[in-house]
Nucleic acid binder design. Structure first.
Lengths: 144, 144
DNA sequence: AGAATAAATGAGAATTATTCTCATTTTTTA
DNA sequence: TAAAAAATGAGAATAATTCTCATTTATTCT
């Protein structure tokens, strides 16, 4: 597992206990967590106000991806690799969020479309996000 | 413009003034609005609690699409046509949200990928959402 | 390593967004 | 048109997030 202290010093921010704990909690999970889930995982070892502050700090140094689940609750995940472009699959039964990679053909087709849309709307498009919604049929330990 | 009273009675819910006003405010706009923008548009003609209730009512009868903007604020739009499948383009300068249609080739490629992912994760995938982020370069009246 | 400086933290207050309660009003039923 | 059902407004309650500030911790500079 990556070294949380290293991550912080690499990004030239001070290395503090709450930051280490938050990063480690996120590193332990393969998939994104809601703020509540993260708070529970940290078990009061980090004050609520500090948790929100730390999340904002991680956003500032661009190692945190933040989005919302279908219930509009904020969800976060660490983004450490440069090549970590991925998307998300949400289960409406258990709330699980799974990181997914799309195939090259998809990303190529999307790039073409994006060029078309940039012209059509006179936009410069810098990023995109794809979210898939469904139900995990029987493998998930949370779904009965 | 569509008739808001008709829309409500078609969906077998009672036709009330707040519902009519909310639907008309949403119909006037081509593009999605945040709850605040909607509230401002309605200028206290609908109580805040009623606005939220009406939005929930419209969700229940499946004519409201709800998602979040990059600041995680809730955004809503009416979904009246069956064939209205579309996606969204967000401007990070002015906050504008534009409805976009992707070409057939894109949706075909996406369908193929979805089939692959359904097998890989043993999921049944029912819906998807694509969000594009960028800046409108000079056409928007809000961007200087 | 230790003192001085700068930055971060914890606790809870403040703010904001959303939901809930309930007496009154409006709509629907028939 | 009367009775029954449903929706509304106003504000209280709740939940999520940010802010404040005195104290603690980390960094910097000898």
């Amino acid at each position: 597992m990556k070294d949380s202290k290293q991550i912080l010093s690499d990004h030239k921010v001070s290395v503090t206990n709450p930051r280490i704990l938050v990063i480690e909690a996120l590193l332990e999970n393969n998939n994104p967590l809601t703020v509540d889930e993260l708070q529970i995982k940290l078990k009061n070892k980090v004050a609520k106000s500090t948790l929100y502050r730390v999340l904002n700090d991680l956003k500032k140094i661009n190692i945190l991806n933040e989005f919302t689940n279908p219930e509009n609750a904020i969800v976060v995940e660490l983004l450490l690799e440069d090549d970590s472009h991925h998307h998300h699959l949400f289960c409406s039964d258990c709330g699980e969020i799974i990181d997914i990679q799309m195939g090259d053909e998809f990303e190529r087709t999307l790039s073409k479309e994006i060029k078309r849309l940039e012209k059509k709307f006179n936009f410069s498009i810098e990023d995109h996000r794809l979210e898939l919604f469904g139900k995990c049929t029987d493998l998930c330990e949370n779904c009965s």
